[in-house]
Design a protein around this nucleic acid. Sequence first.
DNA 1: TTGCTCCTCACGTCACGTGAGGTGGC
DNA 2: TTGCTCCTCACGTCACGTGAGGTGGC
Lengths: 148, 148
Amino acid sequence: MSATVAEATLRIGEVAKLVGTTPRTIRYYEEIGLLPAAETRESGRHRVYGEDEVERLREALRLKSLLGLSLEELRELLEGEEARQARREEFWRDDVPVRRKREILAQGREYVDRQLELVRRRREEVAALERELVAQRKRIDKLDAELS
Amino acid sequence: MSATVAEATLRIGEVAKLVGTTPRTIRYYEEIGLLPAAETRESGRHRVYGEDEVERLREALRLKSLLGLSLEELRELLEGEEARQARREEFWRDDVPVRRKREILAQGREYVDRQLELVRRRREEVAALERELVAQRKRIDKLDAELS
DNA sequence: TTGCTCCTCACGTCACGTGAGGTGGC
DNA sequence: TTGCTCCTCACGTCACGTGAGGTGGC
């Protein structure tokens, strides 16, 4: 018996429903190499996915939607995420000197700060739109009150 | 001499630059009827735009970008905006009874509230992403401090 | 007059949608 | 075994990008 926990395997339609997209989109992302294609699957057989893949896809679609990224931009971002994950694993290894650990943290900080800047700008833009709508709403209420 | 203030007329390239898009996009929007085509222009002649058209286009692109709308959804939203503008003008006419004015305000409130709900949801999503990044940033700082 | 921007086709591209016809697994 | 979902082409669509070849206005 393997030590790894048996992972629930899902089919493409279930995954699509879970993350709010379509099977075609998932296949397309695999086709252009945005998502990894399972090495073992032979043509014609069903694709199977695990919980972690679902989570990564959900996260990718969230970033794409919220930041309005093209698939090429999304690809770059995901590559950055992967590099970050690799550094994270290196950080926690026992044989890594403190000097290297500091370097890893500095790179992580740089990465997160870049993302934060993008996201903050977006949030500010959406918040500005919200403020305008709230102001409109108040003007309507005021006019209503003034109709004696 | 006309009483209307002479409006600066702009060409499509200037308009595109002002609103952060391309001439092709503006032409395409006109082609599918999302933007009105000037009646008077004959084929082959330059398109000219006024400040108000620039402002409307800027607003439309902002909504499309921030809310992630398709052009069909944007079209519906712009139609709503136009209806709202018509009601606003009716509201300020002298011959409109108070009863009708209240009705207009109620419709405006309904419209603004629908928009607000959309925008608030988006803002919350972006803010949630921002919080996650801030938390990551803090974890990095903490790890750095713990490296004695 | 010379540049620059504009014009209209029209084909290309990105990111999928939508059948057509067929096979796979609970 | 029967349904359902899955599979692979492959063409269609949306929202433009990108020349090609030509004309217009400061």
